[in-house]
Simulated assay, not measured.
Amino acid sequence: MSLLRDVSLPAVTAGFVAVLVGFTSSVAIVFQAATALGATPEQISSWMWALGLGMGLCSAVPSLVLRKPVMVAWSTPGAAVLATAAAAGGFTLAQATGAFIVCALLMTLAGATGWFERVMDRIPMPIASALLAGVLARFGMDAFLAARTALALVLLMLLAYLAGRRWWPRYAVPGVLAAGTAFAAASGQLHLAGVSLSLTVPVFVSPEFTLAAAVSLALPLFVVTMASQNLPGVAAIRAAGYQMPISKIITLTGVVTLLLAPFGAFALNLSAITAAICMGREAHEDPARRYTAAVACGLIYIVIGLFGAAVTGVLTAFPRELVVAVAGLALLGSIGGGLAVALKDELHREAALITFLVTLSGVSLAGIGSAFWGVVAGALTWGVQSWRRHA
């Protein structure tokens, strides 16, 4: 079986690190959104079930079929929009569920018509690479900022990374994770008390469709998911050198969101940060075998869905500094590669640099994150420069 032949420890580790980073960095926002909508503990567990299964199936199955690393995640900015809008508008969980379905239909339409992929095709590769580097660079900085509160842990992980890159480059990231986990366990920073293994029971919520929820929840959720998540997700795919059927994958995320929305799957989308972990050289030296990292990630997400509360407890037991340090170190190669492509061509260099800086700034306007505005700024710069040359 080709999967068993292609799989490796670095690939499985990359998949686990992707889950660890993606889950622990934003699960609190998802909990906040569910709570703001009045969800019970059982319904919050159902959200984890739906999101885990959705992310897992949308990552593992296409990766196996295409033999390319397809990475799907939940919409973190979408969860933030839900938490804010729910608190302001007083929407019920049933009304929010109706909004999830409307958003899913819009996502399916965006994929089926191919308009989103056509827009992405018009973005020059240097600008797309600068966008990706800007999204990832914040994680690289956070890895070293973590030394403020956990100097010994971060220094140990940095030394493990440098030693790994020098003597066993394929196992650098597994070595970093092992060193950090061992240190955290020895110093009593792993908090596993109270973790119990039990299957999650999905809870069906009958949707209620209202115009107010469609305007205040569904449309903002759709816009931020496409602009702040799918846009850098496509950039990550192309920066890694993969050609994928983007429209079909977007359609898949829309359809799966539609099916799982009554159970709590508010929005699924292409990933950028965790995708970079599984698409980089740390996952495997051979790009043709990196799909196994995405498969491993998908299988772990499925386990999260099935054993929601227990796995959530295990993943959140890791110290925050360990998570951000392993993420930043694992992404160094992708950050460097993105910057190299972005700044290599002098013709696009200024536009790419502006894209990178605006994206890195984290600025948010009209509820839309810096990834979108970075592309807007870069495209505007490129348009003005092109017009000047051809005038």
Rank of each mutant, 00 (worst) to 15 (best):
287 P>Y: 05
266 F>A: 06
121 D>T: 10
32 Q>F: 09
210 T>D: 06
77 P>H: 12
112 A>S: 13
39 A>T: 05
121 D>C: 11
328 G>D: 07
334 S>T: 09
317 A>Y: 09
220 P>W: 03
41 P>A: 15
206 S>G: 14
152 A>P: 01
48 M>L: 15
259 L>N: 07
311 V>W: 00
389 R>W: 06
85 A>P: 02
147 A>H: 05
384 V>F: 12
275 A>P: 05
304 I>H: 01
390 H>M: 05
344 K>F: 04
105 L>W: 05
87 A>T: 13
9 L>C: 13
75 S>H: 03
298 G>F: 03
206 S>R: 14
94 A>Y: 12
165 R>P: 01
5 R>I: 08
293 A>C: 05
228 S>C: 10
54 G>Y: 03
34 A>K: 05
324 V>R: 02
258 L>H: 03
204 F>R: 10
128 A>P: 02
121 D>Y: 10
383 G>N: 10
218 A>R: 00
51 L>T: 06
1 M>H: 15
369 G>H: 09
17 V>M: 12
119 V>C: 12
160 A>K: 00
135 V>A: 08
262 P>C: 08
76 T>W: 02
245 P>L: 08
79 A>T: 06
298 G>M: 13
171 Y>N: 13
229 Q>F: 04
119 V>G: 10
152 A>N: 08
151 L>Q: 08
80 A>N: 11
351 A>K: 01
13 T>R: 07
356 F>Q: 01
180 G>N: 03
183 F>K: 01
132 L>F: 10
328 G>S: 10
303 V>T: 12
123 I>N: 07
77 P>Q: 14
302 I>A: 09
237 I>G: 00
353 L>F: 14
7 V>Q: 11
346 E>S: 13
314 V>C: 09
320 R>F: 12
112 A>H: 07
239 A>Q: 04
184 A>F: 07
351 A>T: 05
217 L>C: 11
115 W>F: 15
285 E>D: 15
177 L>A: 13
66 L>N: 04
324 V>S: 11
160 A>N: 07
341 V>T: 10
